[in-house]
């Protein structure tokens, strides 16, 4: 069973190539660890549906997945598979009465931090729009 520790408000799953720089940058530009937590995967193709659902269960109000643009994935189709899983997760969220927009797949250029920051800001904005679904 996954442990009950609180995760940040926004959780990001990034592949090795998109997250390496971004994590530090985020901290540098003043995003608190409580606001964002980045989980680094070797490739977003490795993304587990359960990992995203559990992130929500453990306190995340929104989750983004940042993978490589199609064609530039080191593992050829890793980010494509991740995108399909995100669609499946969206369906599950909808079934549970949670806004499917709380999870999103972002295809970002490798090694740049701005697109990841933008992804975070987008998701933080969505939380503002939807409000929190976790009961206090």
């Amino acid at each position: 069973m996954p442990d009950k520790k609180k995760t940040a408000t926004v959780k990001g799953f990034c592949c090795n190539y998109t997250a390496r720089l971004s994590g530090d940058v985020l901290l540098e530009i003043g995003i608190a660890p409580d606001d964002l937590q980045i989980e680094r995967l070797a490739c977003t193709g490795r993304l587990e549906v359960t990992a995203v659902l559990d992130a929500f269960s453990q306190g995340a109000e929104a989750v983004f997945v940042a993978g490589c643009r199609h064609g530039s994935c080191h593992n050829v189709s890793g980010s494509k598979r991740a995108a399909k899983r995100v669609i499946e997760i969206k369906k599950t969220l909808q079934e549970l009465g949670i806004e499917p927009e709380r999870v999103e797949m972002f295809l970002v250029p490798r090694g740049e931090s701005e697109p990841v920051v933008a992804a975070y800001k987008e998701m933080a904005g969505r939380i503002d729009r939807f409000g929190r679904f976790h009961k206090e």
Partner: peptide, 16 residues
Amino acid sequence: VAVLASALRLGAVKAG
């Protein structure tokens, strides 16, 4: 089964 359990867990969290 793992996905179903995660989804149900999230459903329970949402319902408090």
